[in-house]
Simulated scan of single mutants.
Amino acid sequence: MPSTHALTPGRLTRRVLNPFVMWLNRRGLSLHGAHTLAVRGRASGALRHAPVNPLELDGRTYLVAPRGHVQWTHNLRAAGTAELRLGKRVRPFSAVELADREKPRVLRAYARRWSEVGRYFSELGVGRDATLPQWRETAEHFPVFALTFHSPAGGGTGTGARDAAESGDAAGSGERAGGADGQATFDPVRAGGPEPGAGRP
């Protein structure tokens, strides 16, 4: 049975910290590497937003969900495409979810890069010093997506000419990305809410 592991963010993270991180992002400021993920909701098709920490590793960019199978992971899995945003810089991409056997080195690199999210991984007995076999045993609980960008990084508007109004969007109950998961990274940034009946990052 597929993992439904997800850690639900607290009210402070959902209502204050995540919106603050995305507010900074809209002004071109990145807190500890955070970007805003803009992805279509799998039911409504409306844009949903979540703070995430893209990981650069061996020339590739990855999104990791340390809180588990949260809302933005469900939306990205369904949509297959999304955008990373920071100020006026909009980077459309296609996402491919990694198989569990491909995740360990990415998960280990992520845990070492953002040690502040260690408590999310430690829920399942892994952390920055875990071995690759240990990461392999828990890989199913942490979605990882490899990104392929559609155009060179640069200023653009992509799907989000209306980003200023939507980036802090808190609507979209069963499919909302913001406040339900991101990769979110350190507590404010890595928050993301679980799918009803599932769980979150």
Rank of each mutant, 00 (worst) to 15 (best):
S3I: 05
S3L: 00
S3M: 01
H5D: 09
A6D: 15
A6T: 10
L7K: 02
T8M: 01
P9K: 00
L12A: 04
T13G: 01
R14I: 00
L17D: 10
N18K: 08
N18I: 10
N18D: 14
P19A: 11
L24A: 10
R26T: 14
R27D: 07
R27T: 04
G28P: 13
G28N: 15
L29S: 05
L29W: 06
S30I: 12
L31I: 00
A34F: 08
T36G: 05
T36V: 15
V39K: 02
R40C: 09
R42M: 04
A43T: 12
A43S: 02
G45N: 10
A46T: 03
A46K: 05
L47P: 12
P51N: 08
V52G: 03
E56V: 04
L57Y: 02
T61N: 11
L63G: 04
L63N: 14
L63Y: 02
V64L: 06
A65M: 13
R67S: 06
Q71H: 06
W72D: 07
W72I: 09
T73A: 15
T73G: 07
H74V: 04
H74T: 00
R77T: 09
A78Y: 01
G80I: 13
G80W: 07
T81R: 10
T81C: 12
E83K: 02
L84S: 02
R85N: 10
P92Y: 09
P92Q: 05
S94Q: 06
A95T: 09
A95L: 12
A95V: 10
A95Y: 05
L98Y: 00
D100I: 09
D100G: 03
R101V: 14
E102H: 01
K103C: 13
R105N: 12
L107Q: 09
R108D: 13
R113E: 03
E116A: 13
E116R: 03
G118K: 08
R119A: 08
S122Y: 07
G125W: 10
G125Y: 01
V126I: 05
G127H: 05
G127V: 07
R128K: 07
R128D: 13
D129W: 14
A130G: 12
T131F: 03
T131Y: 03
E137A: 13
T138H: 03
A139W: 13
A139D: 11
E140R: 13
E140N: 05
H141Q: 15
H141K: 14
F142G: 14
F145T: 07
A146V: 12
L147K: 14
L147F: 15
H150D: 15
P152Y: 13
A153M: 12
G154K: 15
G156I: 10
T157F: 10
T159S: 15
T159W: 12
G160I: 02
A161C: 03
A161P: 07
A161F: 10
R162P: 07
D163M: 11
D163W: 04
A165V: 14
A165W: 09
A165K: 07
E166A: 09
S167T: 14
A170V: 11
A170E: 05
A170M: 08
A171M: 02
A171K: 03
G172A: 05
G174A: 05
G174M: 01
E175R: 01
R176A: 01
A177S: 13
G179Q: 03
G179F: 00
D181R: 02
D181K: 00
D181I: 04
G182K: 00
D187Q: 01
R190G: 10
P194C: 06
P194T: 06
P196V: 13
G197Y: 00
G197K: 06
